[in-house]
Design a protein around this nucleic acid. Structure first.
Lengths: 195, 195, 195, 195
DNA sequence: GATGAATGAGTATTCATTCAT
DNA sequence: CATGAATGAATACTCATTCAT
């Protein structure tokens, strides 16, 4: 972002922009997503848009970031509190599905239409590092002292498999299907308990 | 595609266009991918391009289709010939990894930058149907007569999980890592053998 | 220029653009000079404009270049043919005044409003080098073997003084005044004949 | 200017703005010269800027005016005190060169990039009138009662020739070269003493 | 008087696509 | 069939200027 909104007036402006953008992206897709249209929908002048966002991409990134923050928040809490492993899996899967259920249309656009920044799925990225660290802790807590591959290798495979199942279900609009949740849980448990 | 290339000269033209497009997409990314540039790189006039492709999207789809055909081919053969289940998994995973290793740069672009047609991951799409059917057969062959979720539900989860692991590894450039293959095999086996 | 106009159709296009630009610059000044307006006035689409000119500045440069070519042409011929010095001066001054009389409004805009390229009055520039060389020859032919400053130093002062007199007269619209010509000739002769 | 700064605080504000503007123009050129940037560099809000300057052009004019005032000051004193003609020329040329040596980068921008007001080199303009009057007096004092063109015609030619030599030297960065000064003096003397 | 958030008209430039030759 | 000159709708982004606080 070009400039941090300090006063409450500007905070509202930024909020309105992000919300309008989410709506437009959801409803019209990437093709209908123009900075002028976003500003208008937000009830804000195009000039105000560029006070806070240096360009078009940075708005997409801001939206993506909010989603990533949600995911990270879930990961941080899902591992807390010494629950039994079975519960751990159910909570994690449930949370991730819940997060991706908020704006179903948005995810398809974000995944398949909007261009991604360089940092997307880049292991050097700060978010990716912390996200993976959460998974690593979670894996360590789950598997106990069983042998085999490193926590990190398992964390990556697990994270990517869940990512694939959840995102593709979101694309198909079947994220609410109970079968998806049940089977995903079964998948995770089976993998975690294998040798 | 606008018209099927019947003569051999036409076939060569189409081939040249698709190859040039693949190269440009790989090297310059979606941003550098313009129809005029593709035509020039293919040694063809822009007018000729539009003889064979009705628009820009159809070229992307043609490229994607080649990849999907590869995947389908693998799925068709991977399930053949009454191999033992353990072998079945190894062959499948190995083939999918091999397919995605051909143009590493291209996949990242296709996944994260290029827009997808409506048919992408659409269950109504002919490719999706056949692809899923392969998985279903494969699942049926593997699991035997165990109870639980339907073959279809399992096939979808499995396909999506593999998709997630393989595509994210391709994005990171770690597709050749042996840990990816080993763990992916373990994931599939564990899931297939669970209750 | 982005691309040389090879066919006669495209040559006409480029010509129409440059002419329309000259007219607009002359009539509306730099403020009214937009690429879209130029294209429209030239009876050409904005797309055609950008086939031949990479940006807005390059069109200004093209116009300036034509003027510089005129000046250079004059300098090349003004020194030819062993005329007596007195005649030399009169021909030179007359030609320069004539060149600047073609589009009186244009010069004021080009000088005082339009941005100049890096090469403007840059001694490293090819045009500047050749232009100065002409002046040097001319000075050498005029002064004979008199001592004093180098031909080059004299050429620069002379060129700059003429430049100042002619351009300021053009700005004021007094270029046609016979006093300007008479006195400029007197200035040049006096300088050339001084010790 | 919108209003004369009467209090000392206001004077300081105006001063800070003009100085910041000079610096920015010098360092970043006309392209980097924006009212917001100038205000920020001056440590003043953009709102305050518009208290003192009605628009952007007036700031440029203020900067130019300071330079013109310098020139006029020089002209006023250069002609005083019954010096011998030879001394007169040397003082005049020396002063003009000195004035243009203060901000070399600024002059190139002011001459070649910044747009000029309608008053620029406009004979109706008060500055132009007074400046020319100085030159006329100076010419009259120098030439004595020799015949020929009017004092005014000579004054214009002289002023423009000096303008050309000095400004072009400033553009090239050769204003400090002693040859420029020597030859310019020689040019003026030769012209004044001819016929 | 001072502030700085907000404004919005204005413009250069791209690139998929057409069609006369 | 091939060519490539021409098209023009569409859009990101700037920056001088205003005015509510």
């Amino acid at each position: 972002m070009r400039k941090a909104p300090s006063q409450s007036r500007s905070k509202a402006t930024v909020e309105a922009i992000v919300e309008a953008a989410t709506r437009i992206l959801s409803d019209l897709g990437w093709a209908g997503f123009t900075t002028n249209k976003v500003a208008e929908a937000a009830g804000v002048s195009i000039g105000s848009y560029y006070q806070y966002f240096p360009d078009k991409l940075s708005l997409i990134e801001a939206i993506r970031q909010r989603h990533l923050d949600d995911c990270l928040g879930t990961m941080r809490t899902a591992g807390e509190g010494g629950k039994p492993p079975a519960q751990l899996v159910e909570d994690l899967v449930g949370s991730i599905i819940a997060i991706h259920s908020h704006h179903p249309g948005l995810h398809r656009v974000l995944l398949d239409e909007a261009p991604s920044a360089e940092t997307f799925r880049n292991p050097e990225d700060a978010f990716e590092k912390e996200y993976l660290a959460c998974y690593r802790n979670w894996v360590a807590a789950y598997r106990g002292s069983r042998g085999g591959a490193s926590d990190e290798a398992i964390a990556i495979i697990l994270s990517d498999a869940i990512d694939g199942v959840v995102h593709n279900a979101a694309r198909r609009g079947t994220l609410q299907s109970s079968a998806v949740k049940t089977e995903l849980i079964r998948l995770v448990r089976a993998y975690m308990e294998s040798s």
